[in-house]
């Protein structure tokens, strides 16, 4: 039996269908809620979000179902009750995260917390629920603070995530794949096999040259090509953007060299951003409108596409606790 926690309940991994492994309903840095320049009415939020999810649902019909992994951590505007209503009304499975996008998004209460407390926080959110929503987190978010260098708080969060992953079986995904040596050390020390970890944003424009892909692959880690669509060809690309062809060729090198089981892909788009303008025109549906046609044009078989978006993701998201010896 496989089990995956979605915001509306626990389902079999076989029900997930096409999975976008790293997306956001809405993301904002902690404190942005105080700045009224970003406020939107609930009408506007639903209006910006529902059509994108409905389209995602439509686009995934050939795979039978749509799953949207919401990568917004604690303190970043994560809003479980809202996700529940969106999932219920659009039919898209939504998997929520526990954890933090990085140490610089953990507010003072968590900044002061021990590894043990952070572990308990993550385990509680995965096994009991998030706040009083009744919904359980299905994945653990960790990440590298700004500056491409792991900070002490980042490392504390990674260690707690590794422990929580062993206990609950929930996988981990990272914000950024740079400065991975300390992360790999922590996972080894904590006895967490790295196929339970997705090293994310390995494809973004600012990380190139800073990622030790070989070390991640040798450790058995999964590599995230999960910022598809942040193309420098856009009229107003973000600073982490990259030329479309360059990213595509990077991805193809992995697909064409027998590494298809170690990659995952997504768009990291915001349906309705919370504390920043977002990137106009970029949605999760880039995967269907641009990426899949690009891949097919490059001769990638549908079976490979299914492997990346259906089988790898199902294997990754299924809860796999590791018993202590």
């Amino acid at each position: 039996m496989t089990r995956v926690n979605t915001v509306l309940g626990t389902i079999s991994a076989s029900e997930l269908g096409f999975v976008a492994i790293h997306e956001h309903i809405g993301y904002g840095m902690p404190g942005c809620e105080l700045d009224s320049r970003w406020w939107k009415t609930p009408e506007q939020r639903y209006e910006e979000t529902v059509p994108k999810l409905r389209k995602f649902h439509e686009n995934t019909k050939p795979w039978g179902a749509a799953t949207f992994v919401e990568a917004t951590g604690i303190c970043n505007g994560r809003d479980i009750d809202y996700y529940k209503s969106l999932s219920d009304k659009t039919g898209v499975h939504i998997v929520a995260s526990t954890g933090f996008v990085g140490g610089d998004t953990a507010l003072p209460f968590f900044e002061r917390a021990s590894v043990e407390y952070l572990t308990d926080q993550f385990v509680h959110e995965i096994t009991v629920g998030i706040g009083d929503t009744g919904a359980k987190a299905g994945i653990i978010k960790v990440g590298v603070s700004r500056g491409f260098k792991m900070k002490e708080l980042d490392l504390r969060i990674y260690r707690a995530a590794a422990r929580a992953s062993r206990i609950t079986g929930a996988p981990i995904f990272t914000h950024l794949a740079v400065d991975s040596a300390p992360a790999l050390n922590i996972f080894a020390e904590e006895g967490l096999p790295c196929h339970r970890v997705l090293f994310g944003h390995a494809d973004d424009g600012v990380s190139q040259g800073l990622i030790n892909e070989k070390a991640l692959l040798d450790a058995g880690g999964r590599i995230g090509f999960d910022t598809f669509g942040y193309d420098l060809e856009l009229p107003d690309p973000p600073f982490w953007g990259r030329h479309r062809q360059e990213r595509l060729q990077h991805f193809l090198r992995f697909l064409n060299s027998g590494l298809v089981k170690q990659v995952l892909a997504s768009a990291d788009a915001n349906c309705s951003p919370l504390g920043w303008p977002g990137v106009k025109g970029h949605t999760v549906n880039y995967l269907f409108e641009q990426l899949l046609p690009d891949l097919r044009a490059e001769g990638i078989e549908d079976s490979v596409i299914d492997q990346v978006f259906v089988h790898n993701t199902a294997d990754f998201l299924a809860l796999q606790p590791i018993n202590n010896h």
Binding site: P30, L107, F109, D120, G131
Partner: peptide
């Protein structure tokens, strides 16, 4: 204390 509103306990 900022963040305590999200604490599980």
């Amino acid at each position: 204390l900022p963040g305590a509103q999200y604490a599980y306990d």
